[in-house]
Design a protein around this nucleic acid. Structure first.
Length: 199
DNA sequence: AACTCGGGGCA
DNA sequence: TGCCCAGAGTT
């Protein structure tokens, strides 16, 4: 889930946001954005996904990575939404995490972006940047990273913090080639100093 | 903790 | 054209 997507998404529609974020797992937002316009034209409500044959839904999102899993998950997810939640997206992280294809990271994005509930979504960028900066130990799980960040950041800034860290990680503090020599945070970054010494 | 699922971006 | 990237679920 890259930050680009948040700009294109309809924040006032939790259902579309949920579908888009589920589609985004392990793929670039550019590829998700290619299908969402036509997808949201065709499928408006959970009923529409639930009624569609699986093969048809697969075809409609074919260009996205892991599309078979995602089609299956989305169809099931919509059936559960209809059966258990009156067709509405629950504004609750733990309820969202019961849905197939929705893990903690996706659930945190949905509650924070769609419902304004303070949450820190820990994806690989947030995790990597937090660890490089020394905010938390390398051995921490994503959940531990989330808890540490929640302790260190005021609640009002949780959501914007994960946006900032995702941006920073995606475009600047990249996994393979971080731009340490021109990094504004170099003076407080453990990993940056280590990396520049060895190069 | 390791593996699987699949396509896009970039070297 | 092959390597690296990005979550969730299962074992």
């Amino acid at each position: 889930m890259f930050p680009d997507a948040h700009c294109e998404l309809n924040h006032s529609n939790p259902f579309e946001l949920l579908i888009a974020v589920v589609l985004s797992a392990q793929t670039t937002d550019a590829s998700v954005n290619k299908v969402t316009e036509s997808l949201f034209q065709k499928y408006k409500r959970p009923e529409d996904y639930a009624a569609a044959p699986l093969e048809e839904l697969e075809r409609d999102i074919r260009t996205i990575g892991l599309y078979r899993n995602k089609a299956k998950n989305i169809k099931k997810l919509c059936e559960i939404l209809l059966r258990e939640y009156g067709g509405e997206v629950p504004a609750d992280r733990d309820e969202l995490m019961k849905l197939p294809g929705v893990g903690r990271k996706t659930a945190n994005v949905v509650v924070s972006v769609a419902f304004g509930i303070p949450a820190i979504a820990v994806d690989t960028h947030v995790e990597r940047v937090s660890k490089r900066l020394g905010i938390c130990p390398w051995k921490d799980t994503p959940l531990q990273v989330e808890e540490t960040l929640m302790k260190k950041v005021p609640k009002e800034e949780w959501s914007i913090t994960h946006h900032r860290l995702i941006f920073f990680g995606r475009y600047h503090c990249k996994a393979q080639s971080p731009k340490c020599t021109v990094c504004p945070l170099f003076h407080l970054c453990r990993e940056g100093k280590k990396r520049l010494k060895t190069t």
